[in-house]
């Protein structure tokens, strides 16, 4: 933003609308934590004093999808859980982002078996994957920062997952 713009002195800041909106979005991502397993315990650490996600403006953890714009899928997603994950994702309004936290959510992890979904990207589109079983808190913060970085550097594209077709999409 043009904080040092000479035209209007110090009272007025000139910028582009997109940039102002992105700046606001970037600093107030509200997570919807879809926590199911071990990774959710590590998310508790991310939200606690030591790692403190509020330093990045994302501490308003809402379990209500209508109020959130950043879904963090923390934990194993089974076939039984899949329709619920999909429903909650659909209930979130645009703009929205998805972080797949940990090995299970990203690929099924070492649960290569009859009950575990082999990655949530089989049903919903994912923006950032975080490795680890579970990932350290720093790794999740890094994923958050990368979404913020992207928001800062380019315009938000609501159609970026337009061609995505998951297993549960009819």
């Amino acid at each position: 933003m043009g904080l040092d713009s000479p035209t209007f002195g110090n009272e007025v800041i000139t910028t582009k609308l997109d940039e102002a909106v992105n700046w606001a979005r970037e600093s107030s991502l509200w997570p919807m934590v879809f926590g199911t397993a071990c990774c959710a315990i590590e998310f508790m650490s991310v939200a606690s004093s030591k790692y403190d996600i509020s330093r990045f403006g994302a501490e308003v953890v809402r379990f209500s999808p209508r109020q959130s714009d950043l879904m963090i899928v923390a934990g194993t997603i089974t076939y039984k859980q899949a329709p619920i994950l999909k429903q909650i994702y659909d209930q979130m309004s645009e703009p929205k982002w998805v972080i797949s936290m940990g090995a299970c959510a990203s690929s099924g992890g070492f649960y290569d078996n009859y009950t575990t979904m082999q990655g949530i990207d089989e049903i919903i589109p994912v923006d950032v994957y975080v490795a680890g079983c579970p990932p350290r808190p720093e790794a999740l913060l890094d994923a958050l920062l990368s979404i913020q970085q992207e928001l800062r550097s380019k315009a938000y594209d609501p159609n970026r997952h337009k061609n995505f077709k998951g297993l549960l999409d009819v």
Binding site: Y79, A82, P83, N113, Y114, T115, M117
Partner: peptide, 18 residues
Amino acid sequence: HPLLKSYNITDGQICTKS
């Protein structure tokens, strides 16, 4: 019944509705 020895471990089955 997945714990029967005849059931293949990786045979997942999709659930479409709760």
